[in-house]
C-alpha cells in the first residue's frame, strides 16, 4: 500500500516536471500570457479607482480594496491552469492514450494542472516583484497559525479549482464540443469567485448566489485569509467549507468520469 503510494507520488512528480517543461517550451507564449494578465490587472485597478474617485461610498477603504485586488489577481492567474488538453482529448479520442497509462487519469491531469499553477505562481511573484513600488502597503498575515491556515486554504483552492475544471470538461462527453461548457465555467468563475471584486462588495441580489456556489472558495476565501480580512473564528469554517467543496466535487468528478468512460465511444484507428 505504502509502496504503491510512493510509486504514484513518484510518477506524479515526473508528470509535474514534464508538464512544466512543456510550458517552458514556449517562452514567448508565456510572456504574452503574462503581459495580458498584467494589462487586465492594470485596467481593473483603473476602473475601481475611477469608481472610488467618483465619490461612491464602498464598505471597504480604497487601500483595502487595492490589497484585495492584488492578491485576488495573483491567485486568479496562478489557479487558471490548463485543463483544456483534457477537454480536447475527450473530444478527439486522445483520451485513449491517457487511459493506457498505468496511473489514474485524474492524477495525471491533477499533476499537469498543479505544475501549470506552480509555474504561473512564479510568474505572479516576478510580476509582483516588478510592480512592488506601485503597489504600496501589500502586507499579508504573518502570524504562524494564519500562515498555516493560508497554506491549507491555497492547497484546497487548487484542489477545488481542479475539481470544477474536471467536472465541467466532462461536459464534452455529452456535447462533443467543449467550448460552450468551458466558457460557462469561466463566466461563473469570473463573476462569483471574487476575481474582479470582493464578495463583500457584491449587490444583495448576487450575494446569496456567491455564498451558495463553490467559486468564491477559489479566490475570495484564500485572499481574505491572506489579508486578515476574516472575522474571529471564521477561518476554520471557511477551511471546512473549502475542503467539503473540493473533496466533494473531486469525488463527484471521479464518479461521473467512471460513468462516462463506460459509455465512451473512441472510434477510429
Amino acid at each position: 500500500m505504502l509502496a504503491e503510494l510512493r510509486a504514484q507520488l513518484r510518477a506524479g512528480g515526473m508528470l509535474f516536471a514534464r508538464s512544466t517543461q512543456r510550458r517552458l517550451a514556449y517562452p514567448v507564449g508565456a510572456l504574452i500570457d503574462l503581459a495580458s494578465f498584467v494589462a487586465i490587472f492594470g485596467l481593473t485597478l483603473l476602473l475601481w479607482r475611477a469608481v472610488v474617485s467618483q465619490g461612491n461610498s464602498l464598505p471597504m477603504a480604497w487601500s483595502e480594496l487595492l490589497r484585495y485586488l492584488c492578491v485576488a489577481f495573483g491567485l486568479g492567474y496562478a489557479l487558471e491552469f490548463g485543463i483544456y488538453p483534457f477537454q480536447q482529448s475527450i473530444r478527439t479520442g486522445g483520451i485513449a492514450i491517457d487511459l493506457l497509462r498505468p496511473v489514474p487519469v485524474t492524477w495525471l491531469h491533477l499533476c499537469n494542472c498543479l505544475s501549470w499553477g506552480a509555474l504561473q505562481a512564479v510568474y505572479v511573484a516576478i510580476a509582483a516583484g516588478l510592480l512592488w513600488h506601485w503597489i504600496p502597503d501589500l502586507r499579508v498575515v504573518t502570524d504562524l497559525p494564519t500562515v498555516l491556515a493560508l497554506l491549507v486554504s491555497l492547497c484546497l483552492a487548487a484542489l477545488l479549482q481542479f475539481s470544477i475544471f474536471f467536472l465541467f470538461a466532462q461536459g464534452s462527453f455529452i456535447t462533443q464540443f467543449g467550448y460552450g461548457i468551458l466558457y460557462t465555467r469561466l463566466s461563473l468563475h469570473q463573476v462569483f469567485s471574487g476575481a474582479f471584486a470582493p464578495v463583500a462588495l457584491f449587490p444583495e441580489s448576487l450575494k446569496p448566489w456567491a455564498l451558495a456556489l463553490p467559486f468564491r472558495h477559489v479566490i475570495d476565501t484564500p485572499a481574505r485569509i491572506a489579508l486578515g480580512m476574516t472575522a474571529p473564528g471564521e477561518i476554520p469554517i471557511l477551511l471546512a467549507q473549502q475542503a467539503a467543496w473540493g473533496l466533494g466535487l473531486f469525488l463527484l468528478g471521479q464518479l461521473i468520469f467512471d460513468h462516462f468512460l463506460g459509455k465512451a465511444q473512441i472510434q477510429g484507428g
Binding site: 510509486a7 513518484r10 510518477a11 515526473m14 508528470l15 514534464r18 517543461q21 512543456r22 517550451a25 514556449y26 479520442g93 486522445g94 485513449a96 492514450i97 493506457l100 497509462r101 498505468p102 496511473v103 477510429g268 484507428g269
Partner: peptide
Amino acid sequence: GVVFGQRPQLIWDIAVRETFNLNRVMYR
C-alpha cells in the same frame, strides 16, 4: 505495451528522451 498508429503517446512539446524517462517511472 500499446501502439495506436494514429494516436502517438509521445509528449508533443518536449524531447523524445523525456517521454522515455516518464514511462520508465510510470511503468516502474
